[in-house]
Design a protein around this nucleic acid. Structure first.
Ligand code: FES
Ligand code: FES
Lengths: 152, 152
DNA sequence: TGAACTGCGACAAAAATAGTCCTATACTGA
DNA sequence: TCAGTATAGGACTATTTTTGTCGCAGTTCA
């Protein structure tokens, strides 16, 4: 439950890979797919989407591929997930234009919306750079104030 | 993305309802389902599961139903979600006995595990009581330190 | 030109969720 | 003690979401 989709996973993995290989000018979808053993065509779509939202720059043709369009530490996990999976809503009802079928009876949406914000905050606070350097600095945590719900 | 299942939603709604009606000794699944307009049989299953893990006490027969087995403020959203949807893993690979197919190549699990912890922490910090009293105290937030990831 | 790429749209397969049905069992009260 | 109301739970189906594939068009470069 509350799982990331594989597509989002793949996207994060790919960005992490790119962040770890700044030497390579551009890397093809196939290269990344091969090193991780994931479906090349599927990863290609993911990368295309990330390109579309501007997180990557693509280059067609031979020796083409992708490269980060921004520094790894300025790209948050939230951006990636949002680009691939769409808006992040923990509540089952997408609070778009038309509200949920359960309203007005369901009064649970409001409290959960705040939880949603907290989760988004956590996701926004971690960058691709953080993920890439993870192996070298295990358990790197620090306390920063985060607005959160509290009981009394 | 990252949505709660409807079952979990239903469960939270039901517990919230029970927390708001401490007067009623016990409320039937049908009563709750009717007031929220959700499938009675499905809610029944959810409540049965919550009973099984000890969050509710059930009472069969006429005028039977369910009641909270503990005070609302001692029941966290995390417990409810965990009971209904199982363990909370943001990563697509359940890190059970057998590890993911993508390992050892995929190195993304570790960083995300920490994100996972943060989310679980948020969910643990909000109680049914918090959700129930939500209408009266809009936007009630306070800062409490929460261990979280940080970029340099 | 042709090989190695990206960019899409449509599609098919698989898995997770949501919901229903049916039967058994427990309790209540008249 | 019997009828009615409720929980308990297994099996099953339907629906939706996710995952993956295919085919084709456009691009770049040697
Ligand atoms: S689930 Fe949509 S309003 Fe509660
Ligand atoms: S998704 Fe399973 S190890 Fe990364």
């Amino acid at each position: 439950m509350l799982r990331l989709t594989k597509k989002a996973d793949y996207g994060l993995m790919a960005l992490k890979y790119l962040a770890e290989h700044p030497d390579s000018v551009s890397v093809s979808a196939k290269d990344i797919a091969d090193t991780y053993g994931i479906p090349p065509q599927l990863l290609a779509k993911v990368l295309q989407r990330l390109t579309k939202v501007g997180l990557l720059r693509s280059h067609a043709g031979m020796n083409g591929g992708y490269e980060l369009s921004r520094a790894a530490r300025t790209i948050s996990a939230f951006e990636v997930i949002h680009a691939i999976d769409g808006p992040l809503f923990i509540t089952s009802c997408t609070k778009g234009s038309k509200s949920c079928e359960l309203e007005p009876s369901c009064t649970i949406k409001e409290p959960l919306a705040r939880v949603n914000e907290s989760i988004a905050g956590v996701l926004k606070s971690i960058s691709i750079h953080d993920m890439a350097e993870d192996e070298s600095t295990p358990g790197r945590v620090a306390e920063q104030p985060l607005v959160m719900l509290t009981s009394s």
